[in-house]
């Protein structure tokens, strides 16, 4: 053991020397996205294809800001060969100083598929620290997208049902050209489990209407759970122009 100490000591000495010679604290503080509005709204927004989106963005950093990126892409997973295409946009802006405000605008292409899109805003500082991003949803509308003509229940308001009830939907989904898919889901908002999940494919080439009475015809009734809970109803229709129309509402079972 006596022989090993002289060998071991230089090791410890070198480690202590290097680990104690820090020049200054490195900048590891993340920048911060203070606010984001799209068309003046600080929540999710709706806009028509061909219109302009106006952003107002405020970012902060403890030392020096560097860049802001707006990344937009669709949040639907169906694609077809069609005149309309899902819009994707990546735009980077240089910023400086400790606080910066910018007001960029982006024009939605006239041929953007309708449907839900994600807007992801992020920011980095001059040292490469990345902020926590902000996610917003934009619903893009398009002429000729499927139209939901639901007569009952009123999906403009939250719905109340008793346990075990059947959620009867009356009305139609209308389309100027050809519907390709209807997808209805009911999700438990607490557990995120789907308690109803049905996709109806429309393989024809001129399906201009889908009637909700199909749910009864095909024995696909939306029967609510027998326990109480809070659910999220989502109805999505897709046409052959890759347009999506989505309608969503809360359903309370108590």
């Amino acid at each position: 053991m006596k022989k090993s100490l002289p060998i071991l000591l230089p090791f410890l000495g070198i480690v202590l020397f290097f680990s104690s010679c820090k020049k200054e604290d490195p900048d590891i503080t993340k920048p911060y996205i203070g606010y984001l509005t799209i068309n003046g709204i600080s929540g999710d927004v709706s806009a028509s294809a061909g219109s302009t989106l106006s952003f107002v963005i405020g970012v902060n950093d403890d030392k020096e800001l560097k860049q802001v990126k707006i990344d937009i892409h669709d949040a639907f997973d169906n694609h077809h060969h069609s005149p309309n295409v899902p819009w994707t946009s990546q735009t980077i802006y240089n910023v400086s100083g400790k606080t910066s405000t910018l007001s960029p605008t982006l024009t939605i292409p006239a041929n953007a598929s309708s449907g839900p899109y994600d807007v992801i805003l992020n920011c980095i500082d001059a040292s490469g620290n990345e902020a926590l991003f902000v996610l917003r949803k934009i619903t893009i509308t398009q002429n000729g997208q499927p139209v939901m003509n639901i007569t009952a229940p009123d999906l403009g308001i939250e719905l109340d049902y008793a346990p075990g009830d059947t959620l009867h939907i009356s009305g139609t989904i209308d389309e100027d050209n050809d519907l390709t898919e209807i997808h209805i889901t009911l999700e438990n908002e607490t557990t995120s489990l789907l308690v109803y999940d049905e996709e109806f494919a429309l393989p024809g080439t001129s399906d201009v209407q889908w009637d909700f009475s199909q749910l009864a015809t095909l024995s696909k009734w939306i029967i609510l759970p027998t326990g109480t809970g809070h659910y999220h109803l989502k109805i999505k229709a897709v046409d052959n122009d890759a347009n999506n129309t989505v309608i969503e509402q809360h359903v309370h079972v108590d």
């Binding site: 990126k69 892409h73 990546q90 980077i92 992020n122 500082d125």
Partner: peptide, 12 residues
């Protein structure tokens, strides 16, 4: 680095 990727969904 202190620069964003111009590619979609990619961060810095």
């Amino acid at each position: 680095g202190a620069e964003f990727s111009p590619l979609p969904d990619a961060g810095q």
